[in-house]
Design a binder for these strands. Structure first.
Lengths: 278, 278
DNA sequence: CGCGACTTTGACAGATGTCAAGGCTTGTGG
DNA sequence: CCACAAGCCTTGACATCTGTCAAAGTCGCG
């Protein structure tokens, strides 16, 4: 669990400057580990929710049903993602979430998330920015599915996953992404057969290949080009922070952040309960 | 401007319980009115932003470019929407926003938005829930473009717009939605010619017709069915609220909310600056 | 009244979907 | 360790939807 939680905190930190205390408050959030088999539902559409989950291992996704039983996967979540963080703000599920592969999730009660947001306003901020980042990905998916042709859509997806996994290093590299071709079809809005044809094309052109669930990128530049991929939507230029902004304009270091542990700093927006030191 | 601002506050209130004071704090946000012609850019991709805008009149949208100059509209915003509220949290534009028709927007400086969020934690919450709602729409668009065939996509879009405009009353009704067929094509990921063919089908089957930019819904049930439309994603079941939660479990009325005007209530999460009464 | 911007139509091309069969992997049980 | 079964991948033939191109028709604005 630890590693995925660390990853989650890193993603938050990429958009919001968090102190060590705040980071730890997130890391030590309690929850319940749950193991899932591929295809198993995590939450169903319309259900009331009382917890949000962190993906610890494996891959999860959101699925929407269209008429004729056609399925559309509208989001994919990797280890370290928190797919339904939104539910902490709106506790009714607005789509079905399922494990795309064998997966482990860590369910954190909304109550705990609420507590931590109340104690640390910067964490609320961080969550909101995380949601903003998520929305940017979804928007890019609209473009992917709406404006690119088949091979591009698939190439784009693999580019995105590679970057999100932090694996896109150099021209050639491999990563584990055990998604079925039928699921790729549901992601890209294509038929499974056509996905297969596209993968064959990518393979025969020495751009990428898939062997026993491992994705081998053979020519990253080419893949990026074919996928019309610009990673800009995955990152924020610089981390921000409103809460507890240092009055002197001095950047909060992990040092100065630690002050939160002893008392209230200069300009708190929240009246913080004293942080619990586990 | 007033009417669209009221609409915005209503949309916030649908998801977050706001007091009269808080609502007024939003309503009286200062800004600058700006008039735009159809096709004109509001913000370009990647630009730093210092304000967010409320759509006062007309229709705006986000546009992403794919290779070969193909454009995809990933979101449409109506009067009362705040298309780039996200920028208050992440002040770099992540897509180009343009006026889809002649439009008027009201630009509110981030500074002011930040102020109001700082003073009223419930407003921060409300903004976050608004962003969550926006994301739900975007996700539905992925499904629309990825999993439905041409006529359905178009029908679905019109259903969504009708509901968002609050115009879907009864079996037959009309509303003004002056979008070009070429823009419809950019929204649905189809070619303009094919959009035309689909519109002709809808017309000949007496489901809906378009006359001089007015959309006439002739058979709402049928349109909903053809569009595979379920309005669930547009609404939240019940408004929520964390901030200043009444300790007795008593519901905040506009009365009790007014207490905020005089001082700090029992369990504030924020140390509020005294609200400014304009 | 005339021009420019949209819409409408037709003919044709191309991309992607569907159906169906056969070949591989992978995991399980003997 | 082998054999089998189930699920997944691959391929081919063919159908269909949607895109492209081009021209004519319509609407609205100056």
């Amino acid at each position: 669990m630890n590693q995925s939680m660390t990853r989650f905190v890193e993603m938050l930190s990429a958009r919001t400057r968090l102190t060590a205390i705040e980071r730890q408050a997130i890391t030590s959030l309690p929850g319940m580990t749950q193991h899932l088999t591929g295809g198993e539902n995590i939450v169903r559409f319309g259900e009331p929710m009382t917890s949000a989950c962190l993906v610890v291992q494996g891959f999860c996704g959101r699925v929407e049903m269209a008429s004729g039983g056609k399925r559309q996967i509208t989001a994919v979540y990797l280890a370290g993602d928190m797919p339904d963080l939104y539910s902490a703000f709106q506790p009714t599920s607005n789509s079905t979430m399922e494990a795309l592969t064998k997966a482990t999730v860590f369910r954190i009660p909304h109550r705990e998330l609420g507590d931590v947001m109340r104690r640390y306003p910067a964490i609320t901020e961080a969550f909101t920015r995380y949601l903003v980042g998520d929305a940017a990905i979804t928007m890019e998916w609209v473009t992917n599915v709406g404006a690119r042709e088949a091979v591009s859509r698939i190439a784009h997806l693999y580019c995105e996953i590679a970057v999100r996994l932090g694996q896109s290093i150099g021209q050639r590299f491999s990563f584990y992404f055990p998604i079925l071709q039928s699921q790729l079809a549901e992601i890209t809005g294509l038929s499974a057969v056509h996905v297969n044809r596209c993968l064959m094309t990518l393979r025969s052109e020495r751009v990428m290949s898939i062997e026993r669930r491992m994705v081998n990128v053979l020519d990253w530049n080419r893949l990026v080009e074919m996928g019309d991929f610009d990673p800009g939507y995955l990152t924020a230029p610089a981390p921000q922070r409103f809460a507890n902004w240092d009055p002197e304009g001095q950047v909060l270091t992990e040092q100065s952040g630690k002050k939160d542990g002893i008392g209230i700093t200069a300009t708190p927006f929240f009246v913080a309960d004293p942080p619990v030191n586990s």
